[in-house]
């Protein structure tokens, strides 16, 4: 248990409450004939009880030292990079987006040199294009390069 469990427990019990409300709205049905909300409602109920227990435990029980948070900026940038890839890939096409992703991670996040970053990015994007698109014929988006 860590101190944050107090807030996590609270958050999940609120979420569970929402799920239960949705469950009722979808229709619980009966035990003989469960409706679409049956499983969500009961799973939500269990989640709610457990979350409250976790929350209480966080207040009453012993808590360990929480994990340290290092490199928060880098983690955020890595996450944004993959989200960016997702949003751009259909528009820019696979090769270009893959190149940008790898180059960004190496140059901006890991602060490698320009030459190194671009060289690795070209190699990785090219190789994955050959393997996935040409050999395995995965249907990766071609994007603007196609037209």
């Amino acid at each position: 248990m860590v101190k944050a469990d107090r807030w996590i427990g609270l958050f999940f019990s609120l979420f569970a409450f929402y799920v239960c409300v949705e469950g009722v709205r979808l229709g619980l049905g009966t035990y003989q004939r469960p409706g679409p909300g049956f499983i969500p409602f009961y799973a939500g109920l269990i989640l709610g009880v457990l979350s409250l227990a976790v929350c209480l435990w966080g207040f009453l029980g012993q808590t360990d030292k929480p994990d340290r948070w290092q490199n928060r900026g880098q983690i955020a940038m890595v996450f944004l990079a993959i989200v960016g890839f997702t949003l751009l890939v259909e528009w820019l096409g696979f090769i270009l987006t893959a190149f940008l992703l790898v180059a960004f991670l190496l140059k901006v996040v890991e602060r490698r040199g320009w030459g190194f970053s671009v060289a690795v990015a070209v190699a990785v994007a090219g190789a994955s294009y050959v393997v996935f698109d040409l050999w395995l014929r995965a249907q990766l988006p071609a994007g603007i390069l196609a037209s």
Partner: peptide, 10 residues
Amino acid sequence: YPMILLFCLI
């Protein structure tokens, strides 16, 4: 890790 991420995305 950039390659791992790329493979996951693909």
